[in-house]
Computed example of a mutant assay.
Amino acid sequence: MITGAHVILYSNDADADRAFIRDVLGYPHIDAGGGWLIFKLPPAEVAVHPAEGEGRHELYLMCDDVHGTVAELTDKGVEFAQPVTDQGWGLLCTIRLPGGGDLGLYEPRHPKAYEL
């Protein structure tokens, strides 16, 4: 019935963020026309957290070695809005996107649903 999920990042500079995902993160992509790139994401999972008031949605990239990934991305000129912190459930940091937005990156300590 459902065959996939489509994630949308809103950006103040979509071209710069598309170039970042294409060139820095190296995600494969298709051009849907006019430079409108759609990227293949790594395996994914979804969690539902309780919220007070209106809910919100967040996107986090996951990795097996956050310190190694941060070092590799730093060598590519990536800026981080938040350094690596221990959250108990994993090690978390925040990538600053060229368009001004932030993107979470973490090394999970919890079981990964995408490995099912």
Score class of each variant (00 low, 15 high):
Gly68Ile: 01
Leu103Ser: 08
Asp102Gly: 15
Gly101Arg: 04
Asp17Ser: 02
Trp36Tyr: 09
Leu59Val: 15
Pro108Met: 08
Phe20Pro: 08
Tyr60Leu: 10
Pro108Val: 02
Arg22Val: 01
Ala32Asp: 09
Leu9Phe: 06
Lys112Thr: 14
Leu105Ala: 11
Asp86Phe: 08
Leu91Glu: 12
Pro83Asn: 12
Glu107Thr: 01
Val7Gly: 04
Trp36Pro: 00
Gly55His: 14
Asp13Leu: 01
His110Pro: 00
Ile38Tyr: 09
Gly33Glu: 09
Tyr10Cys: 00
Asp13Asn: 12
Gly53Glu: 11
Pro98Cys: 01
Gly26Cys: 02
Ser11Glu: 06
Thr69Tyr: 00
Asp102Glu: 15
His49Tyr: 15
Asp65Phe: 03
Leu59Arg: 06
Gly53Met: 11
Phe39Ser: 03
Trp36Cys: 03
Glu52Thr: 07
Gly99Cys: 04
Pro98Asp: 04
Val70Cys: 14
Ile21Gln: 05
Leu91Ala: 06
Ala47Glu: 14
Gly104Tyr: 04
Val84Glu: 13
Leu92Ala: 10
Pro42Ile: 03
Phe80Ala: 08
Asp75Lys: 15
Gly104Leu: 05
Gln87Ile: 01
Ile2Val: 11
Thr69Pro: 02
Ile2Pro: 05
His29Asn: 12
Asp17Glu: 03
Ala5Leu: 13
His57Leu: 12
Pro111Ser: 07
Pro43Glu: 14
Gly53Arg: 07
Gly77Asp: 02
Cys63Asp: 09
Arg22Gln: 10
Gly55Lys: 08
Gln82Trp: 15
Lys40Ile: 07
Cys93Ala: 15
Gly100Glu: 08
Ile21Asn: 07
Asp15Val: 00
Gly35His: 07
Val7Glu: 07
Leu61Arg: 04
Gly26Asp: 03
Pro28Tyr: 04
Thr94Ser: 12
Leu61Tyr: 13
Thr69Ser: 12
Arg22Tyr: 03
Leu25Ala: 02
Cys63Phe: 05
Ala44Trp: 13
Glu72Asp: 15
Ala44Pro: 00
Ile21Gly: 03
Leu59His: 05
